[in-house]
């Protein structure tokens, strides 16, 4: 690229060094094309209103959960002796620990609310209809994954309420014929809820489900990109 002025949408860059740096990147990676396609020459439909933003907000809340979750992991210890104490420490001693845990706890509740609003909006305006059937299926999967994240995260502070809610929650599938007892055993990592259960829930909450959820969010977004945003009714 040998030019006087670099045009990026409404931005004009005349600085020679900036243009040379940008040209070097563009020669090697073709960034101009990507930036034009994805940012500077991209248009979005004008008909999107208030009710259309809740999917995006759910996505942002997921990112917020990942970030606050990473910070909580710095101090949290997933052992039945230390879990409760380390969460108390996060709340009382760690600078802004109360805020990070607050944002994580409220974020999980808020994320479920925004997903529900998003689902109602998609249902009422019939956006699940062809060609977007598959994306509804992926979306419901994301809702269930979020419920799984909430269920496993709830136990981690090892409080009385969380412990007994998990006793009930893991007891429920045991009623199923043939597989029920086995499911309960697999969820608890034994007959009783104890250290193995906490380790297991911790691993599922911070690794397994976040990685799966992030991948499925990817599938959700790829489908939106391929099909475009649904038009007005």
């Amino acid at each position: 690229m040998d030019i006087e002025t670099l045009h990026l949408g409404p931005i004009k860059i005349k600085n020679k060094i900036a243009i040379r740096l940008f040209s070097a990147l563009d020669d090697r990676l073709g960034v101009k094309e990507i930036l034009d396609d994805e940012v500077f020459e991209k248009i979005v439909p004008a008909h999107l209103g208030f009710w259309s933003c809740f999917g995006g907000i759910s996505f942002f809340l997921f990112i917020s959960q990942v970030l606050t979750g990473m910070l909580l992991m710095v101090y949290y210890e997933p052992t039945i002796e230390e879990a409760h104490g380390t969460v108390a420490m996060i709340m009382n001693e760690v600078p802004f620990g109360w805020l990070i845990r607050g944002a994580h706890a409220w974020g999980s509740n808020l994320m479920l609310v925004t997903i529900m609003i998003h689902m109602v909006k998609i249902y009422v305006s019939g956006i699940y209809k062809p060609p977007r059937e598959l994306n509804w299926v992926v979306g419901v999967t994301l809702f269930l994954l979020t419920l799984g994240l909430s269920f496993t995260g709830y136990l981690l502070p090892w409080t009385q309420l969380a412990y007994w809610a998990t006793v009930v929650g893991t007891e429920t599938p045991a009623a199923l014929p043939y597989v029920g007892e086995y499911i309960r055993y697999a969820m608890r990592g034994g007959e009783e809820i104890g250290q193995v259960t906490l380790t297991r829930f911790f691993a599922i909450h911070v690794m397994l489900l976040p990685v799966i959820t992030a991948s499925v969010i990817g599938l959700h977004l790829i489908q939106i990109r391929r099909q475009g945003i649904a038009g007005p009714m």
Binding site: F60, R101, G102, W106
Partner: peptide, 22 residues
């Protein structure tokens, strides 16, 4: 959204119940 999270966490701080007792 960040503002809402901060407000909620400040006004109604996350609760930590008593430690589990099997």
């Amino acid at each position: 959204v960040v503002l809402i999270l901060i407000t909620l966490s400040t006004v109604w701080p996350a609760h930590l119940g008593e430690k589990a007792d099997p």
